[in-house]
Design a binder for these strands. Structure first.
Lengths: 143, 143
DNA sequence: GCGTATTATATGCCGTTTCATGCAATCGGA
DNA sequence: TCCGATTGCATGAAACGGCATATAATACGC
């Protein structure tokens, strides 16, 4: 009995995303990190400070959600928050030393997980899929 | 400053999924349906009854989340719940007449939205991406 | 420079999700 | 057929997210 959702783009994307990230989530749990924590730390792992809004757009959270998440992460000493001296409306977020230490082993695990997921596809196939996903994102930015 | 997430499969999937479904969500709001309601109704729209667990696997919700969602939807008369006579542990879920009426126009809108998202790709490109997403799902079932 | 519009973040309230667990029905082996 | 294991769903407490809105800083037109 085929369901409406079968083959429906939105569903395929949601299902694939859910599966892939849930699998990785299982690897994250021993480290005491949620997927949300992971995304924030991974995004900040290069050391640059970002404003709350810029970070929210990258990690796909609404701004109030991220503000509250950051408050919890700051309390856990994973990130540091400070007002932007150049524009005091802004709050800059930076990863802490503890956050960096916590996220470092996970960066490699994430890449390994991706390789495992994609192992049976050719480089061309992977590139094609990623290109279309990136293109979908670019196009939807203006909508 | 490229971020870790750039080009990362899990991120691309999450971002593409989020964008596509958020756009459709805006179209859903006038109908008073959340994305969760929509997924349940769309899945049940062919008339078949499903158990709570089977439905949860399809719509990608955890079982307790779906149980509570279904309770709300049953109160709103969108679905009907009854014990499975063949296995009384199971609860069968079926769409109601009101639910069917509510979801019918949305099925066409969903297909139109998908066409709009994919308009600039060839049929072969679309087929390729969907095939890989479906394959990713199948493979991850056993993991 | 003044008042208004705009941008950036924080907050409050409330509904929802999650995790752990409970309870009941069914299964399966001896 | 009995009993432990398993399966399926429900539930309670606590954490979380979403929406609307408040607050504060900056930009902009005159």
């Amino acid at each position: 009995m085929p369901k409406f959702v079968d083959g429906y783009l939105s569903y395929l994307l949601a299902a694939a995303s859910e599966r892939v990230s849930r699998e990785f989530h299982r690897q994250l749990r021993p480290y005491g990190l949620s997927v949300a924590n992971w995304r924030v730390l991974a995004t900040l792992s290069d050391g640059d400070a970002l404003s709350v809004g810029a970070l929210a757009r990258i990690v796909l959270f609404q701004q109030p959600t991220l503000t509250k998440l950051l408050a919890r992460m700051a309390k856990a000493r994973l990130v540091e928050l400070r007002a932007d001296p150049a524009d005091r409306r802004r709050t800059l977020v930076r990863i802490s030393a503890a956050g960096r230490k916590k996220v470092r082993p996970l960066l490699g695990m994430a890449k390994a997980h991706e390789r495992a997921c994609l192992a049976s596809y050719s480089a061309a196939e992977v590139a094609k899929v990623k290109a279309i996903l990136e293109d979908l994102l670019r196009r939807s930015e203006t909508r």
